[in-house]
Amino acid sequence: MRKFAAYLIFTVFFIPAFGQDTTPAQSTGSLKRSGRPDIPGTFTLELGVNNASSKPSEFSLGFWGSRTLNVYYQYEMRILKSNFSFVPGIGFSMERFKFKNEYTLDYNGSSIVMISPTEAGRSDTRKSQLITNYIEVPVEITFRTNPEDPARSFKASIGGRVGYMFDSFTKIKYKENGEMKKLKDKQDYNLNKFRYGVSAKIGVGNFSLFGYYNLSDLFEKDKGILEDSQLKNFNTFTVGISLSSF
């Protein structure tokens, strides 16, 4: 998934810079544009950091290691001749949650618990993460001060997203007998397969700051993390930067 994302980012944002050139038209002597096709819509890349509200104490997250990469294709449709547009899209959201205490997820019967490196039998754990990947449909209403020139226009957006989780796993890096090892455990951990939330953006041209809040719980109903004999469920949120190609 990481290689796919890197390839897609390179294709969307770098190839267009080299794909266009101007050549003289034979009949008129004017300049004719050649290169990549004029694809309608925009490609959007979002980089953000994740956190959670009302989370269990053991679900303690590191700042930079808990990050999101979103890659969307969006099509902006201006509403009549107003400053507002309707912007649907589709794409991928790839999230990481890095645990500061190096705990990891495990099953306790049908419930999920956070266990320490010692309990997991890997006392020399260096990194522990939960990774979730979604296919998503973002929808936005965007206001621009100058819709005729979006590359130089101030903009603000509100909207929402609906997503389906197609992949989830924990990833642990630890040292054993002097050798560094990595362990990937691919399970669903009672995580919500479907999610939905609200989003907002503000920026200029192709650069924006964005925020996203999940209205759905991270885990399935009544299947959250077991802490002090109580099941705890909670929501996640992301803040970061958004870049678009026109």
Rank of each mutant, 00 (worst) to 15 (best):
M1G: 09
R2I: 14
R2V: 05
F4A: 15
A6V: 13
Y7K: 12
I9M: 01
F18T: 13
G19L: 07
D21F: 12
T23G: 00
P24S: 14
P24A: 15
A25V: 12
T28G: 15
S30Y: 14
R33K: 13
R36T: 11
R36S: 10
D38P: 01
G41I: 06
T42N: 13
E46Y: 00
L47I: 01
L47A: 01
V49P: 03
N51A: 13
A52F: 04
A52S: 07
S53L: 11
S54N: 15
K55P: 07
K55G: 07
P56V: 03
L61I: 08
L61P: 07
G62T: 12
G62M: 04
W64S: 06
T68E: 07
V71P: 01
M77S: 11
K81M: 09
K81E: 12
N83W: 01
N83L: 09
V87W: 00
P88L: 15
F92L: 14
M94R: 11
F97Y: 15
K98A: 06
K100G: 14
E102H: 15
Y103V: 06
T104Y: 05
L105E: 05
S110C: 07
I112K: 03
P117A: 04
E119Q: 15
A120S: 08
A120V: 04
R122C: 00
R122M: 10
D124V: 11
R126K: 12
K127M: 11
S128P: 06
Y134K: 00
I135F: 02
E136P: 00
P138Q: 02
P138T: 05
R144P: 00
R144L: 09
T145R: 09
T145I: 07
N146Y: 10
E148G: 10
A156Q: 04
S157F: 05
I158K: 08
V162P: 03
Y164N: 13
D167H: 11
S168P: 09
K171E: 12
K173Y: 08
Y174H: 08
N177R: 05
G178F: 06
G178S: 08
E179I: 12
L183E: 15
K184I: 11
D185L: 13
K186F: 11
Q187L: 09
F194W: 14
F194Q: 12
G197K: 00
K201T: 14
K201M: 10
I202S: 08
G205A: 09
G205P: 09
F207C: 01
G211P: 06
Y212F: 13
L215E: 06
S216C: 01
S216F: 01
D217S: 05
F219A: 01
K221H: 01
D222S: 14
G224H: 04
I225R: 05
L226P: 08
D228R: 09
F234E: 03
N235A: 01
V239H: 00
G240V: 00
G240P: 02
S242K: 02
L243I: 15
S244V: 07
F246H: 12
